[in-house]
Design a protein around this nucleic acid. Sequence first.
RNA 1: GGAGAGAUGGCUGAGUGGUCGAAAGCGCUCCCCUGCUAAGGGAGUAAGGGUUGAUAGCCCUUCGAGGGUUCGAAUCCCUCUCUCUCCGCCA
Length: 427
Amino acid sequence: MIDPKLLRQSADDVASNLARRGFEFDTGAYLALEERRKGLQVETEKLQSERNASARNIGKAKARGEDIEPLLAAVKDLGDKLDGNEAELAKVRSELRDIELGLPNLLADDVPAGTTEDDNTQVRRWGEPAEFGFEARDHIELGESLGMLDFESASRISGARFTVMRGSLARLQRALIQFMLDTHTSEHGYEETYVPYLVQSQALVGTGQLPKFEEDLFKTASETPFYLIPTAEVPVTNLARDSILDYSDLPVRYVAHTPCFRSEAGSHGQDTRGMIRQHQFEKVELVQFVEAGKSDAALDELTGHAEVVLRRLELPYRTVILCSGDTGFGSTKTYDIEVWLPGQQKYREISSCSNYNDYQARRMQARYRNPQTGKPELLHTLNGSGVAAGRALIAVMENYQNEDGSIRIPSVLQPYMGGQEVISRGS
RNA sequence: GGAGAGAUGGCUGAGUGGUCGAAAGCGCUCCCCUGCUAAGGGAGUAAGGGUUGAUAGCCCUUCGAGGGUUCGAAUCCCUCUCUCUCCGCCA
């Protein structure tokens, strides 16, 4: 959520920033509603103040043993008037809130202009795509010929966009997850967390998926519905919800491995083959809470933490900064890390690292105490994939393939594979 | 699933219709005293919001959540959620 004070005072500045995303903010309608809110609130609070004063007087008079009937008569109409005002105010406030929750975050100044992902710009590149002396296969072909990737069974069980993995390949994904968690906890200072995979709507409002993107989520049919998390960002970031962190605890760094569930509504026809785009996938997520003013540096640092994983795995990648039109709803600035996939001859997203500034923190009242002023201030929240395990698995398969269809295991993963060096049919 | 108890400020914990946003203790901050790995004295110390040039005043809201009764509710009534204890069941 954008600071409502800023919206009131500088609505046009906000609108022109949001226009960079292609988002249209109707400032006139907002400000008119805001004027009504102001009038109603002042009026309502005045009435509340009157009610409180007279209630106190009645109490005192009663204590003195005086006749309170005249006093009661005097406040007779106050209650009804107040009820009406309060109801109207609540309505206006909720309309304002609906608008505010529907506004994306302000973009950072250095986000490049653009409309689609084609306008994202590369900020660095690492490694060189390997030359194979044969035609590189994609992960589907590799996995199926190894007998370890089974889309047929998956579709029989759950339909499209699911995967069944077997044997060493299933283990390899687990190895990747373990390796990533260990790297982030022991080298990058993250605390490992285990969090719920089912959350209530308020948590998703806090991180920004709701109310706007409900169609992307899976929802249970229970009486109070649960949503399946689309990313660990949701439960992990909500750890700071409604709390005031000690300054000395900052920066807070959490890492979590969770499955992620996405309906992929609206992406019909995209990546229908293979396990690039699934309803369920594994991801290791990095989350940071930092003090205001330190989130820019933290984003660079967090992105670097994700990149370390790919370097250790010796997977060629490039890092791009998302353009204004491609930056996510709540993000002020996002770096995507794209890994080289020989089977597609393309760089594909494997991590997305974003600075949310105080946008999520305001939605969930996540604060820290400023030691200078002693007052609570909104945290800045960041998150990024460190990295998506399913896609990392694809990247390893395709980049480490041999001509005979076997797959070498990256050396950093071998300890997690009981020393195994190659995955071949039957092993 | 059954029975019972509870939910109050950073923490512990009083408070059962009328200056209660809330005693006391702990913690924390500042000051004084003391001059030393201590103790003592004093003051302050919830959050959110509105108004405003203002982090000055003033005002509003909040004692798990949501309703209700009342001139007035932390206190009474209803619903819900959560926590704890015991029993049952269970990975």
